[in-house]
Structures are given as structure tokens and as C-alpha cells.
């Protein structure tokens, strides 16, 4: 007996929007944090190349900082949308995470498959008052990372995941 996966029909516009799923966005402060990182990169990359071009006085050398600046600007414009696209949803039996605009990804992690949960927060993240929750299963391919959660939400999610994982515990 086999079952063919059937599409719900053309009505569902976006396949990544699973029906009956209430997505929770991450904190917009994540965008601010990432913009700051981009800004640091801009300083690190643009300053020396610009100085080099100015000192040597070669006109075409200005292309390097120019291209870099364009890329960084593009990245800066993208960050906000990327953070906006980063969403998660807790269902009864699994956690959903989706990310990406151009390269989109959707991950379904059953609670019973969770081996452990990490909550981490670097110095920059702490400054912006955000934390990262990462779920680990026995599969290394599972990329279930939710960055940019407010610490309280991260702690709540961690406890919730841990308790749900325990109640649905399964072997490998």
C-alpha cells in the first residue's frame, strides 16, 4: 500500500506556508545586530582598500572598495528581509523553522527526536538582548537553529522543548 503525496491544489500559493501553522517571527533586534556586524565588516574592508587606492592614486583601484561597498549595501538591504523571513512555529509534536528568501529552507524537527537543546548568546547578542536556541537531533544534517530570540522567550522555548522532548522521548 503506497500513498502518493498529493498537493492540496493550486490554491495554496506558497508551499512553505504550511496550512494551520502560526509562525512566530524572531526579534527585529537580530537585524540590528547583523547590521552592526556588517558595519564592522564595512570598516574593516573599505578603509584599507580606499586608503590604498587613494595613496597609490590608481583610478581603477577604486573599483575594489566600490564593489565591496555595493555588496555590503546589498547585504544591508537584505538583512532586514532575511530576519523577517526567519520564523518558527511550535506544533503539538514538532517544531518548524523556516528561513531564507532566495534560498528557502523549512525544517521539521519532531520533539521526540531531540537529543539536546543549546541556548547561546555571544557578547554582541547580549548587547542586543537576543539569544540563539539550537536543537540537536542524532542527525548532523538537522540545521535547527533559531537566532534572535529574546532571552525570556529562548528560556521558555528551551524548557518547553525539553519537557516535550521528554514526554515524547524515542530512541534513535
Amino acid at each position: 500500500m503506497t500513498t502518493a503525496p498529493t498537493a492540496p491544489g493550486p490554491s495554496a500559493a506558497d508551499p512553505f506556508d504550511l496550512h494551520d501553522v502560526a509562525w512566530t517571527p524572531v526579534s527585529p533586534r537580530l537585524a540590528a545586530a547583523r547590521l552592526l556586524v556588517l558595519g564592522l565588516w564595512a570598516v574593516v574592508l573599505l578603509a584599507p582598500t580606499s586608503v590604498l587606492a587613494a595613496v597609490l592614486g590608481i583610478a581603477w583601484l577604486w573599483a575594489v572598495p566600490g564593489v565591496l561597498a555595493a555588496l555590503l549595501l546589498w547585504g544591508a538591504l537584505l538583512v532586514r528581509r532575511q530576519v523577517g523571513a526567519l520564523r518558527y512555529a511550535e506544533r503539538d509534536d514538532d517544531l518548524l523553522i523556516r528561513r531564507g528568501i532566495m534560498f528557502r529552507e523549512l525544517v521539521v524537527v519532531p520533539y521526540g527526536r531531540m537529543q539536546y537543546v543549546d541556548v547561546s548568546s555571544g557578547p554582541l547578542a547580549r548587547r542586543f538582548d537576543i539569544a540563539t536556541v539550537q536543537l540537536h537531533t542524532a542527525a548532523p544534517g538537522t540545521d535547527a537553529t533559531i537566532p534572535g530570540l529574546p532571552p525570556a522567550e529562548a528560556a521558555r522555548l528551551r524548557d518547553r522543548l525539553a519537557s516535550r522532548g521528554e514526554s515524547r522521548l524515542a530512541g534513535l
Binding site: P15, M102, L106, V108, P110, R113, T137, A139, G141, L172
Partner: peptide, 16 residues
């Protein structure tokens, strides 16, 4: 089925 760990869906720009 019971050995499934987690599942994913991926889509690049061309695929989209």
C-alpha cells in the same frame, strides 16, 4: 518511517 530524524524542504531561486 520510524527512523526519520527530522525533515526539511529546500528551494533555490531557479527551483522557485
Amino acid at each position: 518511517h520510524e527512523r526519520t530524524q527530522s525533515l526539511g524542504l529546500e528551494q533555490g531561486p531557479v527551483q522557485r
